[in-house]
């Protein structure tokens, strides 16, 4: 005899009262659901892949002055339209596949040109500095953009803990590459692990955000949980996801995209409407949710804050 009775229906499958009480809508949805199943998800790509990961609120998040006065891209779009090649190359792949990513336990090793190399547990990283919400523009190299409320604190707060030495000229970020949980890593789309890099002054810039959450909640896996970078004046691929190692180095690191296609992706990859991608124009972008294209802004609209970092540099050469 079983002492513990296991319910036949798990809680998540029980139809909520507000749905079953609304009989007509319920029938409509059931019919639509059947059609979706029948068509193998063809008819509604988004419904078929509804991600049901639990959402966890971050506490003690302060609003930051770094907030662009533009309409936020909806949570649904931010979390289902992603480039995260470790989980597949389609925009919808990460939200479908990233549930396998294990974000606890998680550590970030910081080493290289610093006085106090250390390994930080994710629980400690969350406490190094007060969390703040920053609404940044995000411009993808593929000429689309979003406005996203990230939660985190400046990367410089973390880097200061290890006391970088004078020979730390660049910072290299390595991200998780686990073939067990990441289907994309089994393929050879890019050379794994995904590596990104910043110059030390870019890494220490107050805009460069060590990001732990989005929309006031813990980062969903497909957005680079548990800890990622957000560098708002650079194309999105510079903002490495699921970081496991940070190295302070004296030479310019070779980033994953730079290694894969040096003619198309340079080290700096600053958003620049005047320097086109070899295969398409970067002068305009489509803001997700908008109909007409809008002009891309120099340094993604952050020129006042970051243009001085590149004074005297030929940005066509250092693209």
């Amino acid at each position: 005899m079983h002492l513990i009775h296991r319910p036949d229906i798990v809680a998540s499958e029980i139809t909520p009262p507000d749905v079953y009480l609304d009989r007509r809508r319920f029938i409509g949805q059931a019919a639509a659901g059947a059609a979706v199943l029948a068509a193998g998800g063809l008819l509604d790509p988004r419904a078929a892949r509804a991600a049901t990961a639990p959402r966890e609120k971050l506490i003690g998040v302060k609003k930051s002055a770094w907030t662009v006065p533009e309409a936020l891209t909806p949570y649904q779009d931010v979390t289902t339209y992603n480039n995260y090649y470790e989980f597949g190359t389609d925009k919808a792949d990460p939200s479908e596949n990233a549930h396998t990513l294990k974000t606890r336990p998680w550590t970030v090793r910081i080493e290289g040109e610093c006085a106090k190399p250390a390994t930080f547990a994710i629980e400690d990283i969350l406490k190094i500095a007060p969390l703040e919400e920053r609404v940044y523009r995000m411009r993808c190299v593929e000429a689309w953009s979003m406005v996203i409320p990230w939660v985190g604190y400046p990367l410089s707060e973390l880097l200061k803990k290890v006391e970088p030495t004078g020979s730390a000229k660049f910072v290299e970020f390595s991200t998780l590459a686990d073939p067990q949980t990441m289907p994309g890593v089994r393929g050879r789309v890019l050379q794994w692990p995904y590596v990104e890099g910043l110059r030390i002054d870019e890494a220490m810039h107050p805009l460069t955000l060590l990001t732990l959450g989005v929309y006031g909640e813990v980062l969903p896996n497909q957005n680079g949980a548990p800890v990622r970078l957000v560098v708002p004046w650079k194309y999105g691929f510079k903002s490495a996801k699921s970081i496991v190692r940070i190295r302070l180095v004296d030479k310019m690191p070779v980033s994953a995209w730079n290694r894969a296609q040096p003619s198309e992706y340079g080290f700096f990859s600053n958003v620049n409407p005047e320097v086109d991608h070899p295969r398409w124009s970067q002068a305009k972008e489509r803001r997700i949710g908008e109909f007409r294209k809008r002009d891309t802004l120099m340094f993604n609209g952050y020129a006042d804050q970051v243009a001085s970092l590149y004074s005297g540099m030929d940005l066509r050469k250092w693209f």
Binding site: A32, L42, L43, D44, P45, R46, A47, T73, Q76, D77, T80, Y81, K91, A92, W144, R286, I288, G289, F291
Partner: peptide, 18 residues
């Protein structure tokens, strides 16, 4: 027909034009 159906049911994803 599928495109029209998706268009009417908000099923074209985050970037419908693409």
């Amino acid at each position: 027909a599928r495109l029209i159906w998706l268009g009417l049911n908000n099923g074209l994803g985050a970037n419908p034009i693409e």
